[in-house]
Simulated scan of single mutants.
Amino acid sequence: MQFQLNEEQRQIQALAEQFSRNEIQPRAAAADRAAAFPMEVQEQAVALGLVNTTLPESLGGQGLGSLELVLITEALCRGCLGIGTALCINALASEPILIAGNDAQKEEYLGRIAQGALASFALTEPAAGSDVAGIRTRAERVAGGYRLSGGKIWISNATLAEFFVVFAKTDPDLGYKGMTAFIVPADSPGLTVGEPLSKLGQKAAPTAEVFFDQVFVPDSLRLGEEGSGFTLAMKVFDRSRPMVAAFGVGLIQRCMDEALAYASQRESMGKTLMGHQAIAHRLADMRVRLEAARLLAYQAAWRLDNGQTNTIEASMAKLYAADAAMWAATETVQIFGGMGYSTEYPAEKLFRDAKVLQIYEGTSEIQRNIIARELSI
């Protein structure tokens, strides 16, 4: 079993780390205060080839694998989880088209993403978060296509998206078997994007509600067959959860950076905080959880790249990285003490950014359900 990256992967990782250190981290605090995504960072990341990396070369991408995506994501989110999320989440919108799109859909919409367009994955609804099968957005068959009615919430990059991948019920009586996915351009008549939602953390990553008022979608923009939407969404999550686990790995690494630096210079009772066993043990535990989360994310990505099923591995990686990130952020605030509660230091932002990792892309409870279901008895 090999645990070493190849030369190309090391170069990709080094480039992403340098970009994160030089371009993302210096903007993190201001972007968080303004609750605004710095679009110049998106443009720079596109120019350097740090986003949309899994798109095939024939469509303007780099044809890289899930492991390379995880390496890049970890590095970008180390600089700022909000900015890093907004940069990387395009992969979530591209995956359904990669999996189920026809040649024309791939050429048009993945080609636009490769050129720098942002897109959104629109599944979650006010009454259907963890219960994916419970969505109520309706797609009614009409001449030449469908009419979409309903609404989505907590849609990442919705205010910046050029198009949406929308999941709707084509036959509500069939439950999850009646769900279908569509590509919906943002300028479609009847589609409205709400104002950015006010959030606890990851404020630089815009999220909003999206409303559909009899939005016409032609047959040519349906993804796959009618009724295939739920299966498609589950396939997407197997591919996206290693990336989301890397969100958590990047945040844990940043917690490690900040907590270790502070504990090495802050003095108390005649010695540095690192000289106190209680603090040193916290940092030792943080390092252990960092490496465990990282290895789980890498394993889930590696299995995907090698054509192996990764459902349970992806859920384990997402679950562990999210819970470990929340723990690490809490411990970082504690190590900083009173200063950890101050907005002058990054600890409180790390704490706020971490929490939603346990909620989106399948809550920690849902991940445990998936793992339990996949266990061999």
Rank of each mutant, 00 (worst) to 15 (best):
G229T: 05
R222A: 08
A168K: 01
A186K: 14
A30P: 06
G63S: 03
N6R: 05
T170S: 14
R287F: 02
L64N: 06
G224T: 08
E43N: 15
K177L: 13
L87I: 13
F216H: 02
E7P: 00
A321F: 08
I72W: 11
K152S: 07
F121D: 02
T124S: 08
L50N: 09
A133G: 05
R294N: 15
L350N: 11
Q253H: 09
V132E: 02
K271M: 15
A186F: 04
L260D: 04
G270K: 13
A86S: 14
I99W: 03
P126Q: 10
L290V: 12
G175I: 01
L260M: 10
T309K: 13
L15D: 02
S364C: 12
Y298D: 12
W154N: 10
Q2W: 06
P196C: 08
I135L: 13
L221D: 14
G151K: 00
S268L: 14
L50H: 07
S364R: 04
D187C: 09
E258D: 11
G63T: 08
T73M: 00
W302A: 10
P206C: 09
G250S: 00
F37D: 08
A321E: 11
V236S: 11
L5Y: 03
P242E: 10
Q13K: 15
P242C: 11
R294A: 14
D131G: 02
Q44G: 01
S188C: 10
A261K: 13
I12M: 14
Y146T: 04
A284H: 09
F3Q: 15
E8N: 14
S342K: 04
T180D: 01
R138W: 00
G194D: 04
S342P: 05
V356I: 15
L375W: 02
E313H: 13
I155Q: 02
L69K: 01
A128I: 07
A329Y: 09
G337A: 07
A31I: 03
T363D: 15
N90H: 06
Q18T: 13
L273D: 01
L197D: 12
T330L: 09
V288Y: 13
R239H: 07
E225H: 02
V333A: 03
G248F: 00
A114Y: 08
S58N: 04
V288M: 04
A119N: 09
S228F: 05
E361P: 03
E225V: 02
A127I: 06
R373I: 14
E162T: 09
T73L: 02
G151R: 06
S156Q: 03
L319K: 04
I359K: 12
T54M: 13
E68C: 01
N310F: 12
L350D: 11
V184Y: 10
T343D: 10
G307W: 11
Q277R: 07
Q44W: 07
Q105R: 01
S268T: 05
M286A: 09
P206W: 13
R368G: 00
P196T: 14
A168N: 01
T231G: 14
I12D: 03
Q13P: 03
A28I: 00
Y176F: 09
Q44L: 14
R266H: 11
V51L: 15
Y262K: 05
Q202Y: 05
A143E: 06
Q42I: 04
G150I: 01
